[in-house]
Design a protein around this nucleic acid. Structure first.
Lengths: 214, 214
DNA sequence: AACCTATTGACCACACTGGTCGGTCGTGCT
DNA sequence: AGCACGACCGACCAGTGTGGTCAATAGGTT
């Protein structure tokens, strides 16, 4: 269907993808305006509908593209994850935050698209994402070394707390992340990850047996 | 300005307030439709513009009303808060969650209204909310008993963690809260608060000196 | 020249907007 | 009864923005 589009110059194609994703994520499927997309992407209305038969098809392409992108970005990094929850989840968060910092439009789009309630946006593609998410949640929860936890600690609750702290940190630094990634690249980003680890270290002391806190 | 509206039958007035808040919160200021509001509230178009001179004025009324409501709901409960962070913040969360469970439209509206980027929605009223928020953050942070924390614990980070856990819990149970509040009232709600406390207890053990964990 | 394809942007019918206004109706006063 | 009043109604308005179309064009290749 989208041979025309795929054959496009990479720069132009990426510009269209980015602007379209941004528009969809900011205004939702229904209120997203194709006029606005073509204006921001610097192409003509006709061109957009030359590449994609309809708004819906554009959305579906973006969704498919987004899932694929996320897969490629995260999958290789989580093949063999350590059995230590902290190490594992920090690594996972690092990967996730890196994508979110380097491709904020794409990350926003995927998040919002998943919870968009316009019927046109609620297509079979959700299944695609679900499979992808299930795959991940397996890799995230399967094979954690529970023996490191102190006796008397409710492990399920401990995991939940660790997760909330990771999410909380990520959320609180979201905007900073994007700016930092743009201005300073790796190093500024790594400093934030380090700070995130310092929060988790406090939990490690709390939840792990003393001999497991190395 | 809104004497007509205020003089209205309470039931009708609340219906309009609720539906209007819901519409604004789900679609944002700009995309909210007065047609939809009157339809859902079961009044005529003429009536709405009889009560409020314009869409903007309706929004401002709702905002003002919302701030007042929150004040009345939370203020009395946080006058004399305990110096123990856990007790204090649990109580605060309880109050906040209760409002959110019993008046979800209002809670959503206040949250979304504050971050709406339509210029009409970014009025001086933000100041009103800011003052209200400052007032709260004082009551929340001022006079906490830091002496209970173990030596070597970074208190600022500990507070942050506690906060993230409270937020995380609230977010994860959001939908459940609304249903539970509607179906079972107090008791179901209290069970959730109890569960929330159990998470915090784990942190109390971690962060507090042993003699302060009673 | 002739042909081809990618691209343009003026244009379409239409959906829907916030707001208006002539009119209806119930109520209370004279 | 006649009258005035004000709450309320909903058809209607001009305006805006929509997704999508299509004749015209630009630019390259033969």
């Amino acid at each position: 269907m989208h041979e025309n589009f795929i054959a496009l110059d990479v720069e132009k194609r990426d510009r269209i993808i980015n602007e379209a994703m941004r528009e969809f994520s900011v205004r939702g499927y229904k209120n997203a305006s194709t006029n606005e997309i073509v204006r921001k992407a610097g192409i003509s209305k006709g061109a957009l509908f030359h590449y994609f038969a309809s708004k819906k098809e554009l959305f579906e392409f973006l969704y498919h593209y987004g899932v694929g992108f996320m897969m490629d970005a995260i999958e290789p990094g989580i093949c063999d994850m350590p059995s230590d929850v902290f190490e594992r989840w920090i690594e996972f968060s690092r990967l996730k935050l890196k994508v979110a910092a380097q491709h904020p439009d794409l990350a926003d789009f995927m998040q919002k698209a998943f919870q968009d309630d316009a019927p046109e946006a609620r297509t079979l593609l959700k299944d695609e994402f679900s499979r992808f998410a299930d795959n991940f949640s397996q890799k995230i929860y399967r094979g954690i070394d529970f023996s490191k936890f102190r006796q008397g600690v409710d492990v399920q609750k401990a995991l939940q707390i660790i997760w909330w702290v990771l999410e909380g940190y990520a959320l609180s630094k979201q905007k900073q992340m994007v700016d930092l990634a743009r201005l300073r690249g790796e190093e500024g980003f790594d400093a934030l990850i380090l700070e995130m680890e310092s929060y988790l270290d406090m939990l490690r002391v709390s939840f792990y047996k003393e001999e497991c806190q190395a």
